[in-house]
Design a protein around this nucleic acid. Structure first.
Length: 805
RNA sequence: GCAGGAGUGGCGGAAUGGCAGACGCAUCAGACUCAAAAUCUGACGUAGGUGACUAUGUGUGGGUUCAAGUCCCAUCUCCUGCACCA
């Protein structure tokens, strides 16, 4: 009776072994492979099976690379500053430093249960002063480069989190973190000039081996458009209003102009008759939240009483205010061509403004226009000297024509805005700036960094727009590094994204006191070859990281300008009916019990087996029995094979090569769920072959164990030892290779069809010629074949199809 | 509204244009057992037939092809992202 599979004993034994004998060692000769997980923030809830999946995927991939001869950079760390950690601390009534440390310890313990080969010597924590020293250093460098600046403006304000937010953190008018409605608040903010990098951030997407979806999301977020600015004069004045348009070809069709209510000139355009209405409209608009403004489908507006003059034809058009025009895009003012824009059309209809068609649709003017004709496709009409031109051509040429005539200029625009970088919260990196009345904002000298986050009693957000740090007068009051006079410290802190925008650089040189990362180590270990994580950071962390990396490249800190060569987004694990796992829904599945009952190896396999790694999957506990049974059967087959030690048969050799081929190709294409089913298939076949001689041959078994080692490391290590390799590291023996010739069958089964419908199967030599194959097929079909044979198709190794009438 | 992804048994899912449903879960039957669990063997899309078998079948409707889950056109549903960006 063969010894049964005991996951508890095996896993305990090997866990202890690996602690003493690390499997991933840098001998200085191996090439590096950097496989990175998006580092977690240390939440109090711990890990659920969904977090596990990402870590298992990255570990399997890492171990595969290790098996191929790479030295791995496979680190882990903690994104521990920021709102989630701080909000948790406030809820629990403890200091965030304390709760963060506790949560880190707890999650680290849970992560170790995965048996991933993280190199804990490389661990980083964004709240560690030795780490945030460099987060602050980057800010100082950006300040010196003119990329960090202050601006007073109405920003997105989360009344629940009591802090300002970046555009990227506002989702459908709500706070990305807590879901509260975002309002506007006028604050003096630190901004990062990410817009300086808009073109490079857009263009370099082409270099990246990333999911198309993420590239598209970033492209849309950057939102580059081409067009022209056109200057209109306000009638009877010498004041100008500049509008931005992507459709200068339709300039003759402009019948009115609309300004955002926040436009600097909005109030001034009012006349005595309209002043009351205009001021009321501006006030009402200022009171609306983002959510309201988005939900108001129906257009509203007010006529200012003033008119603008179209520089092209001197036409006099009314100037309106409406909140459908955004203040912070383009110039905050637009020319409106109702005939060729849906929004302008709707507005014109509602307020009875004339509509002039300037592009012929299907060669003619539309009589009773029911909707705008928005395509730039047709001949120009009602357009003076432009009449007869093709709209598509004019669209491209008009910006230059307008520029030459002095009516405006060719421009590009971006949806991307500068990054609101300050937070009115305690738990973040202090912004290393000192405000001096004489010298203005002065950066803390680099040699004085880190600027420590002071200990405080009261760390709750104030809600006033000031950070809790503002209360610590003896911290705030300081001297100017420049002139030595009295000065005050900046009291806002950085957003959570500050640390996560560059942490991956620090892993490879995490103890360096002289530099963010040494030149030598950066060149040797960076950039990241494979980055694995959820898709939720597509326009947040992934965009910010690219921006930071480009900046660090520009100042010569690193030698590459894209941080992540390849990106893989794993799908989410949800509870029943696709509902996101959360504590409040009560559908969180904890991995702890599953590890106890089935073992780490089983759970690792099942995490992959639930479905394609890139898609969301519903978790169903029952399925884990299947992989657990597989491991039991594999174990039983293996130990009895070791005992029987049979000579390899032709069948076994063939199976070995095919197994290597199948597992490798599936793994290479990241089809990890079918790798697991492949193991099951081949195990079933090995069990079948075992029946003849009490087992399968040693080499085939060894091959299977190596193939399995990245997926189920404990059982693989144990069986490798039992196969006579005591003291050897199964994880670095090398990935097995296959030979095409050894996989081939001499005789194959092939389907025989009549008119595309399978009617029989025949077995014939793999290299049989057409005549032989067709003859055999006809024989097998016998009386089923009737009528005239029109065509005989034979695809060797695939099919025989006889077309008969 | 725009863009992307997906629709295959009771369920999760598999199929370089070539025998649809691999692999697994659940279910049912049998073996072992005093019994249960575990394990092993088998059945398992639908309809008809005792049966070998026959017909039918990958959201819906067309098309290309000797051959379509796969390619093309149209259409419906669901999910994700963006959303008055001029």
């Amino acid at each position: 009776m063969a010894e049964a599979y005991n996951h508890k004993l095996i896993e305990k034994k090997w866990r202890a072994n690996w602690e003493k004998n690390p499997v991933n060692v840098d001998d200085g000769k191996k090439p590096k492979y950097y496989c990175l997980d998006m580092f977690p923030y240390p939440s109090g809830n711990g890990l659920h099976v969904g977090h596990w999946r990402g870590y298992v995927i990255s570990d399997v991939w890492s171990r595969y690379k290790m098996q191929q001869g790479y030295y791995l950079i496979h680190p882990m760390g903690w994104d521990a500053f920021g709102l989630p950690a701080e909000n948790y601390a406030i809820k629990m009534g403890v200091h965030p430093a304390k709760s963060t440390a506790e949560n880190v310890a707890n999650i680290k313990k849970q992560i170790n249960e995965i048996a991933a080969i993280y190199d804990w010597d490389r661990e980083v924590n964004t709240t560690d002063p030795e780490f945030y020293k460099w987060t602050q250093w980057i800010f100082v460098k950006m300040f010196k480069a003119g990329l960090a600046y202050q601006k007073e403006m109405p920003i997105n304000w989360c009344p629940s989190c009591k802090t300002g937010l970046a555009n990227e953190e506002v989702v459908n008018g709500r706070c990305e973190r807590c879901g509260a409605e975002v309002t506007k608040k006028n604050l003096n903010q630190w901004m990062l000039k990410i817009t300086n990098y808009a073109d490079r951030l857009l263009a370099d997407l082409d270099k990246l081996d990333w999911p198309e979806k993420v590239k598209k999301m970033q492209t849309d977020w950057i939102g580059k458009s081409y067009g022209a600015e056109v200057d209109f004069t306000v009638e009877n004045t010498d004041r100008k209003i500049t509008v931005y348009t992507t459709r200068p070809d339709t300039l003759y069709g402009a019948t009115f102009m609309v300004l955002a209510p926040e436009h600097a000139m909005a109030k001034d355009l009012a006349t005595d008759e309209t002043r009351a209405d205009v001021e009321k409209y501006i006030y009402d608009a200022s009171m609306k939240s983002n959510v309201d403004r988005l939900q108001d489908k129906e257009k509203t507006g007010v006529f200012t009483g003033s008119y603008a003059i179209n520089p092209l034809n001197q036409a006099k058009i009314p100037i309106w205010l409406s909140d459908y025009v955004l203040a912070d895009y383009g110039t905050g003012a637009i020319m409106c061509v109702p005939a060729h824009d849906d929004r302008d059309f709707e507005f014109a209809k509602k307020f009875h403004i004339p509509i002039i068609q300037v592009i012929a649709k299907d060669g003619k003017e539309i009589e009773d226009m029911k909707e705008a004709y928005t395509e730039a496709n047709g001949t120009m009409i009602n357009s003076g000297e432009w009449n007869g031109m093709e709209s598509a051509v004019l669209k491209k040429e008009a910006p230059l024509i307008i520029e030459k005539k002095g009516y405006g200029r060719k421009t590009t625009n971006y949806k991307l805005r500068d990054w609101v970088f300050s937070r009115q919260r305690y738990w973040g990196e202090p912004i290393p700036i000192v405000h001096c009345e004489k010298c203005g904002p002065v950066p803390v000298p680099e040699e004085e960094l880190p600027l420590l986050l002071p200990e405080v009693e009261k760390y709750q957000p104030t809600g006033t727009g000031e950070s809790p740090l503002a209360d610590i007068t003896d911290w705030v009051n300081t001297t100017c590094p420049c002139c030595g006079g009295p000065a005050k410290r900046e009291t806002n802190t950085m957003p959570q994204w500050a640390g996560s925008s560059w942490y991956f650089l620090r892993y490879v040189d995490n103890k360096n006191k002289e530099a963010l990362v040494s030149k030598e180590k950066a060149d040797k270990y960076l950039p990241v070859d494979m980055y694995i994580g959820g898709v939720e950071h597509a326009v947040l962390h992934l965009l910010y990281s690219r921006f930071y990396t480009k900046f660090l490249y520009d100042i010569g800190a690193v030698d590459f300008d894209e941080p992540f060569v390849k990106l893989f987004n794993q799908g989410m694990i949800t509870g029943k009916n696709g509902i996101k796992m959360s504590k409040s829904k009560g559908n969180v599945v904890s991995p702890d019990d599953l590890v106890r009952d089935y073992g780490c190896d089983s759970l690792r396999l099942y995490e992959l087996f639930v479905g394609p790694p890139e898609l969301d999957s519903e978790w169903d506990d029952r399925g884990i029995d299947g992989v657990y049974r597989f491991l039991n059967r594999f174990w039983k087959m293996a130990v009895s094979s070791i005992e029987a030690n049979p000579q390899p048969t032709k069948e076994m050799i063939k199976l070995r090569h095919r197994m290597v081929y199948d597992i490798t190709t599936r793994l290479e294409s990241f089809s990890l769920n079918t790798v697991v089913s492949g193991f099951m298939e081949y195990n079933n076949k090995m069990i079948e072959l075992s029946k003849q001689q009490g087992g399968i041959d040693k080499e085939t078994l060894e091959t299977a164990v190596i193939l399995l080692s990245p997926f189920a490391p404990h059982i693989a290590a144990e069986l490798w030892e039992r196969l006579g390799h005591e003291g050897e590291n199964v994880f670095t023996v090398g990935w097995p290779e296959y030979e095409e010739d050894a996989m081939k069958d001499d005789e194959i089964e092939i389907a025989v069809q009549i008119n595309g419908k399978t009617k029989a199967t025949v077995s014939l030599a793999a290299d049989a010629d057409k005549d032989t194959a067709v003859a055999k097929a006809k024989e097998a079909l016998g009386s089923k074949l009737s009528g005239n044979i029109v065509k005989e198709i034979y695809v060797p190794g695939r099919i025989i199809n006889i077309v008969a009438k």
